[in-house]
Design a protein around this nucleic acid. Structure first.
Ligand SMILES: [Mn+2]
Ligand SMILES: [Mn+2]
Ligand SMILES: [Zn+2]
Ligand SMILES: [Zn+2]
Lengths: 152, 152
DNA sequence: ATTTAAGTTGCAAACGATTTGCAATTAAAC
DNA sequence: GTTTAATTGCAAATCGTTTGCAACTTAAAT
């Protein structure tokens, strides 16, 4: 039933492996970038740019630099962008070779996030693609509900 | 396999039925509102506020009025808001009694939209909810791919 | 038909997230 | 150390959306 190849049980990526990926793309390892990667490495859930900014030692880098870093990391496939529908992008580090495709369950009261292993069933997606003549079909999917804590 | 109660085969709603719903909520039937509903009534797909604005006889109503109208219609459950991940809200008229829950297949090249009958399987969603102690779980789901026309 | 009170509108301004221009700075290669 | 391309910070611009407010309607009450 698990159709996502994504593993949430994987260990944190080494910082060296991350900087290596950058170097290979002739991107510079700067203070701000190392700091950003360090934050992402330690968080299991998608973070907004503002959240990353808040975690960073204050004054260590501008918010705009984070926006630019995330754009670049996304283009290199090192982070995956998620959209929880609140108008703010969230980013999660992606392992080498992984495309990062997976989903979340979000509490509509406290915004807590649970990583979900399940994915939309492949056969159904395939059927939808064929029925409409579409190719390269994928999906964006997030779950919403009330978490145990908020269910007072 | 169809778990969505939503029917895309339903006929257009009568304008009278729509204005009736407004009246019941002590909302006024104004020129701009009638015009907006008239547009929505004739479109089978989600429309952005700007698209509605463009369809409207120019000068007949301000863009802000459309924003306010959609907020109000959403609150009354008369339209459903959709998010295609491009940072712009889209709205679709919802039938009486229907909650409007359904999904779309969107072409990433030309942005054409196909209404989808399939929904995320209930048993799996139920399992996700239970496994994490969440209640009232629902989902947001959209499909993306390349349509037949764009597959040059 | 006139009055009235609540609901609505347009316009300008405010917003929040994200992007862009540009000159000053810096990492990495020579 | 010099050179060069990449990066940064800061200010300003964009874009979708919301808000304040005074003028204006709709629909109900006289
Ligand atoms: Mn995740
Ligand atoms: Mn639809
Ligand atoms: Zn999936
Ligand atoms: Zn569904």
């Amino acid at each position: 039933m698990k159709t996502c190849a994504h593993k949430h049980t994987g260990k944190k990526q080494e910082l060296a492996s991350l900087t290596g990926r950058l170097r290979r793309e002739s991107r510079k390892i700067t203070g701000p970038r190392a700091a950003i990667l360090e934050i992402l490495r330690h968080y299991p859930h998608p973070l907004t740019n503002k959240e990353i900014f808040a975690e960073l030692p204050k004054g260590s880098c501008d918010l705009v630099t984070i926006y630019r870093a995330m754009q670049m990391l996304e283009k290199l496939g090192m982070v995956k962008r998620f959209d929880f529908g609140d108008g703010t992008a969230r980013f999660e580090l992606v392992g080498e070779g992984d495309d990062g495709h997976h989903h979340h369950l979000i509490c509509t009261r406290c915004a807590s996030v649970v990583e979900i292993e399940e994915c939309f069933p492949e056969e159904i997606e395939r059927r939808i693609a064929i029925a409409n003549g579409f190719t390269g079909v994928t999906h964006r999917l997030e779950f919403f509900g009330v978490c145990p804590d908020c269910r007072k």
